[in-house]
Design a protein around this nucleic acid. Structure first.
Lengths: 367, 367
DNA sequence: AAAGCTTGCTAAAGCGGATTATCTAAATTA
DNA sequence: TAATTTAGATAATCCGCTTTAGCAAGCTTT
């Protein structure tokens, strides 16, 4: 069943049907009578236009390409779900892919997205993808990055204040008497990871402590993460606290801590980046990302760009995280006054940074 | 850049270019010289055919529609990830959607998939979707269901042996001395849930115990799950064990158990359906689904159907689960001999049931 | 009453490919 | 040598929809 069928059946032209279908009947001065006739017939036979043909003709696919690191990771999966809902509400569909942070893989996927003529891109960019992203932007595609950004590329993005998050967490550990604090994370030169590392290092330096940085290479096979984790923790029994750089490494870390029989928080205080059910239940203090707000900003930003023809100034959003304090790292508050950053909303417009507080400090997981 | 551009640039016809692009040069007796000229030029300019136009012309989109209950659920997210990889390897892309088990929503999504001309469907079907699925099958689309199936529709599907799983778990609880065992699950008439319930009930009946069934209505807002859970557990302090019907309700349940200050397993033994990191770390005995195998069978089945024109007999696969025994429910083995179902592989062909053992009993999570 | 507007609708040309039916010139065959 | 065959390539049509440029008939205007 095509527009042509309808037209011939009703003895009118394809053009007329098309105009009616696209709500341009009024504008095109098509009589109400005919409009009714056509809409009735369409309802009767349950006709739906072929989206492919439509896309081919218009150049718009109503598809959003979503590129995450790994859709099976709860953080990305939740973001995906939230974005999906908003996208569908607005007549967009999502095609997604997982990159595993593999640049080559991401490049291929980007090609595939382009072949499919996706209208807009939501991307958690892998390393060294700058040129490809720039290319997309130059071609006029709306692109919103998230989770991390590319310092050399001027794009819209939504990230969290990684630096402050780990700085704050480390500082709290120090203030509550911890001296030998390790930061265990994935080896990565991406912004989010660098900033988390820097936050830790800054706090450590500020208090003239010795840094204990352990960077582990990511691998899909969990054993290859667990093993170095295990031996590191085993070798460094003197540690009194550990800060994990991501939920994934935190989860693995907890397993290894359990395996080693270490008591939390007595043998070892623990804080992990990212907050989810596991940490909540396991009473692990965690740095939580305002996941609903992140997704919301991402899709709002993208939809806005999709509806505008001319590109406006880029929006760079940095949301603040919250620290969910739990038993794995009791903050006994030795000394220094508690200082909570109820981050103000400062809107420096035009290509500059928007910091948005989510007002969520000290709030538990929502997942 | 289109085929026409290439053709005119090289002073040949579109047809020739198209044949070469589709690897039909030999068959169409196009001279090697010309083929080389064209392929070189294509490589030079980095031409890629427009997938939309291609789909419109061929009727094939190389897209697989994946319909899950909720992509942010770890089970579905992991399945999605595994399927994604295999699909991409085989030149297929995935568009997905989450139904929340909402029939109307699923129907709409199915329409959208059809508009997009997806080539095949992988579906965790919501209730009352039988007619729509049948319609798809009648139209000749490959459809593979998973996680649950539709008894009234003759389709391929991949599920696990839900009945035996809960039967076995319940029985083990009984055999290790538990008398007041609750089964807490989501209210649902879908096969997987019915079977899980029946497994529990059968074991309870077999040992002449009193069933304690609590069915909670699913809601996306976790509070609306936690609340009835909390009051049920609070009212029924006499329970000595609880079996949760899904990971989600298990996770919520654990939170409420924690909130109530109940000790596991002394006050309450706990087993949950589905196995993931949380349960592993929290030492919760869990019924694990062989998630890798499930995804593998789903996509293998679908790819097979996509490559065949005529539909072969339907394949119904029931995989066995494994019981990961942990501290939340120590099986002290009071009495009855341990009996492990190393399920045989029985292949009743042609429209009948294939049971595949994954040989994974007693194995921990892999996530 | 001729010129100019409106109204209501449509023919035809894309969009970028796939495919079928042909067509020509050279090579075989009879 | 005339009739076939074959190699090599192409014109034309189609997929289903959008959109531009018009067309014809009825109304106004002057």
């Amino acid at each position: 069943m095509s527009i042509a069928d309808i037209a011939s059946r009703l003895n009118i032209s394809k053009t007329t049907v098309s105009f009616i279908l696209n709500g341009r009947a009024q504008e095109k001065r098509i009589s109400e009578k005919l409009v009714k006739q056509v809409t009735d017939y369409i309802a009767e036979v349950g006709y739906k236009p072929n989206a492919l043909a439509q896309s081919l003709a218009t150049g718009k696919s109503n598809i959003i390409g979503l590129m995450v690191e790994d859709i099976s990771n709860p953080f990305f999966a939740t973001i995906a779900r939230l974005i999906e809902d908003r996208a569908y509400e607005n007549g967009y569909k999502i095609v997604y892919c997982s990159t595993d942070n593999d640049t080559e893989r991401a490049r291929e996927q980007l090609k595939i997205f382009q072949d499919r003529h996706v209208d807009g891109y939501i991307i958690a960019p892998p390393p060294d993808i700058e040129a490809d992203i720039e290319q997309l932007i130059k071609q006029g595609f709306p692109v919103v990055l998230f989770d991390r950004y590319l310092p050399k590329v001027n794009t819209d993005y939504v990230v969290v204040d990684n630096y402050y998050s780990t700085y704050n967490a480390t500082r709290k550990l120090i203030e509550s008497g911890h001296k030998k604090i390790a930061f265990i994370t994935f080896l990565s030169e991406q912004t989010q990871m660098q900033e988390r590392r820097l936050g830790y290092e800054t706090a450590i330096k500020e208090f003239k402590l010795k840094p204990n940085l352990k960077e582990i290479k990511f691998h899909r096979n969990e054993e290859l993460i667990n093993e170095p984790l295990f031996s590191y923790l085993k070798k460094n029994r003197a540690l009194d606290a550990v800060l994990f750089g991501t939920d994934h490494i935190g989860t693995c870390g907890l397993k290894m801590i359990k395996k080693l029989g270490l008591k939390i928080p007595d043998d070892l205080a623990v804080i992990s980046f990212d907050d989810y059910s596991l940490f909540e239940l396991y009473s692990v203090t965690a740095i939580g990302q305002p996941i609903v707000e992140i997704a919301d900003h991402i899709i709002t930003l993208l939809l806005k760009k999709l509806n505008k023809t001319q590109s406006s100034s880029t929006q760079k959003m940095t949301l603040s995280t919250y620290l969910a304090e739990r038993e794995s790292a009791p903050f006994t508050n030795v000394g220094i006054a508690k200082k909570q950053s109820k981050a103000a909303i400062h809107q420096k417009d035009n290509g500059s940074i928007t910091t948005v507080s989510t007002g969520k400090d000290n709030k538990g997981s929502e997942l």
